[in-house]
């Protein structure tokens, strides 16, 4: 059947509630017929009135509740209405959930669903990519599914994971990304692995979340117009990072461009470039490149917003420059 990215999340959530009485969903406006700001829990919430609960607008306390419930053996899944609001929960995530195993030897299996990424008109506070600041802290698993199958399998695996998982779901993909999906036949990749979405020999293009699709489009343009064969890697899991897949590809192609929707300073792209520079230096035929969002808050106007983050055309230009080096 054809499934939208959001429907895959809903399917995984509903099945998790079906299969595991330890799972509960907690967040703003998730309960009842309303089913959440983006309707992820619509239909599920009515089936599980006692396990899909509305929270007050208390993003910090929600995270604390999840941590406490996890310590008591539950499997809480938090829905943050926008990832931007999870800044309020930053303390509980990084200082409490992220330190729990190290400090006490007890696991803290919580899942925070974070609707990330920009959409035109979203503006500075409904568009952010939180994976950079979340990944900097040890103890948190940070994942960012880019496909319908990953949206489904990675949420189910996140709920099975013993560690706190920050599940970054891209809002633009919610309804724009649709695919044929049969869970019995779809590829179930391991939670911590990167995926090669398009094999190629000339240049490695690395990204995650919504930007994977821009990279795939860039690879098509480069192939069609310039005969350049790009390998596209979807990181899938930001933390921990699948360094093996990255290095294997870059060592083979000798060229790498990393594209992210998030800001450049100290970001995931910087981390990947640091890895490549230190571990694959002798294999590089050109300086590693990164394309990130412009280093200002996410703009409101659609024209400004479109110019703010990399797109397929700009990624293709960067690859051409890298190939010409």
């Amino acid at each position: 059947m054809t499934l939208a990215y959001l429907e895959a999340i809903r399917l995984a959530l509903g099945e998790s509630l079906d299969e595991d009485p330890r799972v509960f969903v907690y967040g703003q406006d998730v309960a009842g017929a309303f089913g959440g700001a983006f309707k992820v829990t619509k239909g599920i919430a009515e089936r599980y009135k006692d396990r899909v609960l509305n929270a007050p607008i208390s993003e910090d306390a929600m995270a604390g509740v999840a941590i406490g419930a996890a310590l008591e053996g539950m499997r809480p899944v938090l829905e943050y209405q926008f990832a931007d609001f999870a800044t309020i929960a930053f303390n509980q995530f990084v200082n409490h959930a992220g330190t729990m195993f190290w400090r006490t030897g007890r696991s803290c299996p919580i899942v925070a669903r974070l609707p990330v990424g920009g959409t035109p008109g979203g503006g500075p506070f409904h568009s952010q990519m939180p994976e950079t600041w979340l990944s900097n802290h040890p103890g948190l698993v940070v994942v960012a599914p880019a496909t319908v199958a990953d949206a489904y399998f990675m949420l189910k695996d996140a709920i099975a994971c013993q560690d706190p998982v920050m599940y970054c779901e891209h809002k633009y993909l919610y309804y724009h990304l649709k695919a044929e999906f049969d869970k019995t036949r779809a590829e179930h990749l391991p939670l911590g692995s990167a995926a090669v979405r398009r094999p190629g020999d000339d240049c490695t293009l690395i990204s995650y979340s919504g930007m994977v699709h821009e990279c795939l489009r860039a690879a098509e343009i480069l192939d069609r117009d310039h005969g350049i064969d790009c390998e596209v890697i979807d990181l899938r899991c930001i933390r921990p990072l699948d360094t093996e897949t990255i290095l294997t590809s870059v060592c083979r192609t000798g060229r790498v461009v990393v594209a992210t929707e998030s800001w450049p300073f100290g970001g995931v792209a910087a981390e990947v470039l640091a890895l490549v520079s230190s571990e694959a230096f002798s294999h590089l035929d050109a300086p590693p490149r990164r394309l990130c969002a412009l280093d200002v808050p996410v703009p409101f106007h659609p024209d400004l917003f479109a110019a703010h983050h990399p797109d397929a055309e700009r990624i293709a230009e960067a690859v051409l420059e890298t190939m010409a080096f």
């Binding site: 929600m62 941590i67 419930a69 509980q92």
Partner: peptide, 16 residues
């Protein structure tokens, strides 16, 4: 920060 964690533990016991 500890207060909501206690609340979560109590909510877990209610779920159970």
């Amino acid at each position: 920060a500890m207060v909501s964690v206690v609340a979560g533990m109590l909510m877990a016991r209610r779920f159970k």
